[in-house]
Design a protein around this nucleic acid. Structure first.
Length: 577
RNA sequence: GCCAGUUUAGCUCAGCUGGUAGAGCAUCUGAUUUGUAAUCAGAGGGUCGUUGGUUCAAGUCCGACAACUGGCACCA
């Protein structure tokens, strides 16, 4: 019979555990779930796993699969389970915390490996495909996901129902490497990093910076239409500001700060919010001013843990398309919905039609501020805004910020990792700390509700995701160099320059490739660097004032009158409304 | 920060069990004046991540540190 892929994956996890037990008898087992594209299992053993072990483990697994071992389920009592797993400290820890709650406790045995497990499993190992899995990697992982606990060794395995599916997947992953933002950054001459001088900080080259600016320009244009006011606040401010905001206590060690000659401590801003609060605090605000939208493209610096840095996706210096929305309690839900729709619309312009939303709810932490009652209300408001508008979302329990719940949206990179981009956060902390108020209809002072929001999130990360999703082939309006003009020989240089000039006159950034090389060579090179349009000009084009066009990814050639082409391009590079 | 791996020319990589470095592409120079994915020839270019150590001798062996890659933790 055939089983669902999750069942196969999870059964294979048991097979791997059995194989590892055979090879390293001292091993202690933690757990091994099925995941997207495969499964993993966490082990604790003196032996340090490395790639060199993979072949042997795989071989052992295949032998076990062939052996027709049965997966046998048994319902046991808690006491019985504790006897069985007496030598397995991780299973024991789990059992000691186990609250039966009316549920049955089941164990599965496969050969001499017994695991606490709800199942389900295949009946016999011969139901498992023996050539549709491959060990991917070994990595550290904390027991129970807590860095205070011991680090275990996690072996990741890619697993599918058939060898073809596995091979397709491996091939896809291999191709994904070509879309890696770091590789595209180099190949397309967009940016680079200087690990010796500024790990995790981007050096934008001309072309990369053009894209970066266009992203900002686009968001700026859109939010100005929507009534946002753009401000700019200082990059370096006294430490006392972040003490006041509460961020110093929680994130102090992740800040860049330093002492001045007169003994003061200044801090490079890790976030723009406190600055925004100070701007709101200027003058007296009326209820008629609300909702008030203060936006800032704020460059922020955070000393992120070295192990967390990753290309454009996770950097230490980045720009947020930040905004703070001040409103009344009654306006809150409407404002949340507006932002949700805004984000959805903006994302669609970049081709992201499916975005995953998560409602991040409170976690118990010493830093959390606000009573349960306030949290109930805040979480309820966000949830209602999502539900009432039919927006699909997941709950991310415990993912809230210390000052309030949030709705985050996530985009995937080329190998399927998800990254938080846009966010809407309800802040129950800052208005209080900065004693913000507005005068209500009743003539009394009231505390405004404050929402943080970022749409792209970080320009850096968003560009990383965008590059990977498009493989570097950006829509014309975002392309840093939409047209390169290639003269067939020296004789047509002047005409090539004229074409460039006419394009630039209408705001199309074009350049001529005047190098002493063959057309073949230039077409190859420009194609490799993902130039969207190559315009070749020679005798024919010069005589009838035309261009021969080659579009990226298409070998077909188009001939257009120069005037027509210029007009078309001027249209094509316009930002979407 | 933690676990594993990696670090050799601008890029991609080779250098076996130690005997002071190679290739292709790129770059530069010359020739060529080119019609849609690499024109030919020549030349230059590396204190082998940094730093200690072992050794007569270290790219190669050992240690520390840093960075990078994949995970974990973190992510205001």
């Amino acid at each position: 019979m055939s089983y669902p892929v999750e069942t196969v994956r999870h059964s294979l996890a048991h097979v791997m555990a059995a194989a590892v037990k055979k090879l390293y008898p001292d091993v202690k087992f933690a757990g091994g779930p099925a995941i997207e594209n495969g499964f993993y299992y966490d082990f604790d053993t003196e032996h340090r796993f490395s790639e060199d072990d993979f072949a042997q483990i795989e071989k052992e697994m295949k032998a076990l699969i062939k052996s027709d071992g049965r997966f046998e389920k048994r319902i046991v009592s808690l006491d019985e389970a504790k006897q069985i797993f007496a030598n397995q400290p991780y299973k024991m820890e789990w059992l000691n915390e186990y609250d039966a709650n009316g549920q049955e406790l089941s164990i599965y045995s496969f050969r001499d490996f017994v695991d606490l497990c709800r199942g389900p499993h295949v009946a016999s190992s011969k139901d498992l495909p023996k050539d549709a899995f491959k060990i991917r990697s070994v990595a550290g992982a904390y027991w129970k996901g807590d860095s205070k606990n011991k680090m275990l060794q996690r072996i990741y395995v890619d697993a599918f129902l058939s060898a073809d599916e596995l091979n397709d997947y491996l091939k896809m992953m291999e191709e994904a490497a070509n879309r890696d933002n770091r590789k595209l950054g180099r190949d397309m001459d967009l940016f680079h990093f200087e690990p010796d001088y500024a790990p995790g900080a981007v050096f934008w080259h001309d072309k990369g910076y053009k894209i970066y600016r266009k992203l900002i320009d686009y968001v700026r244009m859109r939010q100005e239409h929507a009534g946002y006011l753009e401000i700019s606040t200082p990059s370096v401010m006294d430490r006392s500001l972040w003490e006041r905001s509460g961020h110093w206590a929680k994130y102090g060690e992740h800040n860049y700060s330093g002492k001045t000659q007169d003994g003061k401590t200044f801090c490079v801003k890790p976030m723009s919010c406190p600055g925004g609060m100070l701007v709101f605090g200027q003058g007296i605000k009326s209820y008629k001013d609300l909702p008030l939208y203060l936006a800032e493209f704020g460059k922020v610096n955070r000393y992120e843990a070295a192990g967390g840095l990753s290309g454009l996706m996770r950097v230490r210096e980045f720009t947020q398309d930040d905004a703070h929305i001040f409103c009344t309690e009654e306006q809150l839900e409407t404002e949340v919905v507006k932002v949700l729709r805004f984000i959805k619309d903006i994302y669609s312009k970049f081709g992201f039609d499916k975005i995953s939303m998560k409602l991040a709810t409170r976690k118990n932490s010493e830093f959390r501020i606000g009573s349960d009652e306030i949290w109930d209300k805040a979480e309820g408001a966000l949830r209602h805004a999502l539900e009432a508008n039919g927006i699909e979302f997941e709950i991310a329990e415990g993912d809230a910020a210390f000052y309030g719940p949030k709705i985050d949206n996530y985009l995937k990179d080329s190998i399927g990792r998800i990254w938080q981009c846009g966010t809407i956060q309800l802040d129950m902390n800052l208005p209080e700390r900065f004693d913000l108020s507005y005068i209500g209809e009743d003539g009394e002072k009231h505390r405004p509700i404050m929402l943080h929001r970022a749409m792209l999130g970080s320009i850096e990360r968003f560009m990383g995701v965008l590059l990977e999703s498009t493989a570097g082939v950006l829509p014309l309006w975002l392309s840093p160099e939409p047209v390169v003009v290639v003269p067939v020989s020296e004789k047509y240089r002047e005409y090539a320059l004229r074409v460039v000039d006419e394009l630039r006159n209408v705001g199309v950034y074009a350049r001529a490739d005047l190098r002493d090389e063959k057309v073949n060579y230039k077409v190859r090179e420009l194609s490799l660097s993902k130039t969207p349009i190559i315009a070749v000009v020679g005798e024919k084009e010069m005589n009838d004032l035309s261009v021969t066009l080659r579009y990226f990814g298409n070998e077909k050639q188009d001939v257009l009158k120069l005037s027509e082409f210029v007009k078309q391009m001027a249209d094509n590079i316009k930002m979407p409304k």
